[in-house]
Amino acid sequence: MLNLKKILTILSIGLFSAYTLLWLWLSFNADPQSQLREYFSDTYGVAACFGGIVGLLVSKKWGGLSSVVGRSLIFFSIGLFNQFLGQVSYSIDYYLLNIENSYPSYGEIFFLSSIPFYILGIINIANASGSKISMRDYKNRLSTLLFPLIMIGISYFMFIKGTPFEEFDLKVNILTFAYPIGQAIYVSLAILAYYLTMTILGGAMRKKVFFILFALLFQYAADSTFLYKTINETWYAADISEYLFVVSYFLMTIAFIQFLSALEKFKKPD
């Protein structure tokens, strides 16, 4: 008999498989300028939309805003959903307003706002997982400063240093700083959350919490690949960076479903 978990799993695997097959077909059959690639590029955000909805459904079962776990799932879901809204914004510019390259457009508000929501999600899930206990150790408190600083430094040298700021307007320059720095902060907090909780987090939720942190790491890899290719002007529609986003949205969705399956495990059998 199909329950909610099975239905969501089937739908997410179906969506991921469809976009994977489409991407593979485009990789072998469509040149970089093909319009078919634009259709991939403009629609794969639906995976983020689906994931965001799944996350909100699961968060309700964990107490929603009234619990730490519920709040973390809500924040992750909104962050994921904003990826979809960002893509929709650019699609509106392209298909309805006939603006071909509208960067930076209002869509960046949604893409950028994913970052603070991911950060809030990580802080909450880390709290639920016992990070506050680990923070009693001064060495661990020091690491909360070191991890983000190291990642910000790496991001600066990889994505910001050497940018000819005088060639771009203020909005572009702000985004040039905001994306790598913001992404460095959320990924360093995800790594830090793992570090602070790896000896104290146990039970049924251990693997599920670490999986959601892994999904965030994967999204950072997708973001970084996209940034790198954009800076080096090697990005094109439906390239590897976009497929990595498809994978990361799928991983986040599965992570949410894992939180749902944990609740089923705790149900006493009739």
Binding site: K61, W62, G63, G64, S66, S67, V68, V69, G70, N127, A128, L263, F266, K267, K268
Partner: peptide, 16 residues
């Protein structure tokens, strides 16, 4: 516990 995991799960674990 309900502040962490939600009231429904906290109560069900206690009762179960």
């Amino acid at each position: 516990q309900s502040l962490i995991i939600g009231e429904q799960l906290a109560k069900s674990r206690a009762e179960d």
